[in-house]
């Protein structure tokens, strides 16, 4: 069996996306909003996957969320943008490992990327070197400007692709 090779993708685009966009989603209660407002990293859902399907997260988001919360230092406050009872994972049919969509404040973004990299190493084990991963990362600067980064490529290249891009953003 010859495995189809995925193409490597890395795109950076300016975006209007912000933390408040996510906090003001109709599926977030005012009680949860008060909790999420302190977060500087939000795991956000996919919307509009199919008709009659609400916001969903990629497979293994539970593990990602737990890993980030267990391993975050005091500077990083990770949260997930969904009510407990609405949390649902979507299992897709291909072997591309979708980490998910994350919005993060620029100041903690390098630490977040390092943690995600460690999570992938831990989660993928012996398959880490040959698995392609997909991550959408929105990095929000202090002045509110934001960049959306799309990474699709080998898990082992994720850190060295994203970190310089985040550094460039900080310099701007």
């Amino acid at each position: 069996m010859k495995h189809e090779s995925y193409e490597n993708v890395f795109e950076v685009e300016e975006t209007q996306e912000s933390f408040s966009d996510w906090l003001n989603k109709p599926y977030i209660s005012s009680k949860l909003r008060k909790q999420l407002v302190n977060a500087n990293l939000l795991i956000v859902p996919l919307e509009g996957v199919q008709e009659n399907v609400g916001p969903v997260f990629p497979n293994c988001t539970e593990e990602l969320c737990l890993f980030l919360k267990e391993n975050a230092t005091a500077d990083l406050v990770p949260e997930i943008c969904i009510e407990d009872q609405d949390f649902t994972e979507l299992v897709m049919h291909w072997d591309l490992f979708t980490v998910g969509s994350i919005i993060v404040k620029c100041i903690v973004a390098p630490f977040a990327v390092n943690l995600i990299y460690d999570y992938l190493k831990d989660r993928l084990g012996p398959r880490a070197s040959k698995t392609h991963v997909k991550l959408e990362l929105t990095v929000v600067q202090e002045d509110g400007k934001a960049a959306h980064m799309l990474y699709e490529g080998p898990s082992k290249e994720l850190r060295k692709t994203l970190l310089p891009a985040i550094e460039n953003l900080s310099k701007k």
Binding site: M1, K2, V53, V56, N59, T88, E89, L90, V91, M92, H93, W94
Partner: peptide, 16 residues
Amino acid sequence: QSLFPYKAFVSPEYLK
């Protein structure tokens, strides 16, 4: 595994 001729697989997509 690399010797096998299989190229097409059936795969489900579902919500947990």
